[in-house]
């Protein structure tokens, strides 16, 4: 008989506990996938952006003093980051190396490659602006950067980051809605308890406390579970990606641990807490009618 009773009592609560746990677990998994994608995108962006540089070619027969002076001038530009001089010699060697040629193959007496400056922007968004400024310098024959293509790429990347941010936010709101709905259902299932507590003089705080606690525990355990599952999942995923596409800039597994852990645990318990609070509010409002 006492066994039956235990079963009966646990039955009421556990089904809702499991639902709350699962709702947070799955939304948190989704969130973690997103965080991975976001971090990966940022990482790729970083690597890829640093490969952007402006090539500014000097006019033919420019004097070495002028080259030096202009280099200093460019370095002083507020938008400019790293500035590197590419001498005609270096440019020639690069060309030869690139096409696997010997010096004699060119059959030239003079070096036809002009010296140039390789200029990086402090912020990649300012690349076009910087290029414009360089174009105004007399000593340059031609200033080359990706132009419209680069700008389009930049726009695309920025769009991705913004969209990712919004999606992350949407996902958060979505999880909150799900968690609230689930905890609300569990509170409504215990409506008689709440009514009785209120009738025998329990304060709002007293009545709410177990639900808030339950919500936070569901959130915390859901978050921790999602964190552990994500870690295992990403471990295998990154292994696979690194062997299949070794040249790509994959984020390392170790770099993922901290952000995923912090977000899963904090977000999980916060979602559980907020969900329980919102659910309590809406149930109270309803019963006040």
């Amino acid at each position: 008989m006492s066994k039956d009773r235990a079963f009966h009592r646990r039955g009421i609560k556990s089904s809702y506990l499991v639902m709350g746990f699962l709702s947070i677990f799955f939304t948190q998994l989704l969130l973690n996938l997103f965080i991975f994608g976001y971090l990966e995108l940022q990482q790729m962006g970083g690597v890829w952006q640093s490969s952007f540089a402006i090539q500014a070619f000097f006019r033919e027969g420019v004097a070495p003093e002028v080259v030096e002076k202009v280099q200093e001038e460019v370095k002083a530009l507020p938008l400019a980051g790293e500035v590197r001089l590419v001498s005609s010699e270096e440019a020639k060697n690069k060309f030869l190396g690139y096409f696997s040629l010997q010096e004699e193959d060119l059959g030239l007496e003079e070096n036809p490659f002009p010296p140039s400056l390789e200029v990086r922007a402090r912020r990649v968004e300012e690349l076009p602006l910087l290029a414009q400024e360089l174009e105004e310098i007399e000593a340059f024959e031609e200033v080359f950067y990706g132009g419209e293509n680069t700008e389009a790429l930049l726009r695309f990347y920025r769009f991705f980051l913004t969209a990712g941010g919004f999606l992350l936010l949407a996902l958060f709101v979505f999880s909150l809605l799900v968690v609230t709905a689930v905890i609300r259902a569990s509170i409504q299932a215990r409506g008689i308890e709440i009514e009785v507590w209120s009738l025998i003089g329990a304060t709002k705080k007293f009545i709410r406390a177990p639900f808030i606690y339950q919500g936070m525990m569901e959130g915390l355990s859901g978050g921790v579970a999602a964190f552990l599952v994500s870690l295992v999942f990403f471990h295998f995923l990154l292994d696979f990606l690194n062997t299949s596409f070794p040249l790509f800039f994959w984020i390392s597994w170790e770099e993922l641990v901290l952000p995923l852990g912090v977000v899963s645990v904090l977000m999980g318990s916060f979602l559980g807490f907020l969900g329980a609070l919102l659910a309590c509010n809406s149930v109270e409002e309803e019963s006040a009618k």
């Binding site: 209120s198 009738l199 025998i200 003089g201 329990a202 304060t203």
Partner: peptide
């Protein structure tokens, strides 16, 4: 103040 009232009643 309802909780205070109700705690003092037996119903």
């Amino acid at each position: 103040y309802l909780p205070i009232l109700r705690r003092n009643l037996g119903v």
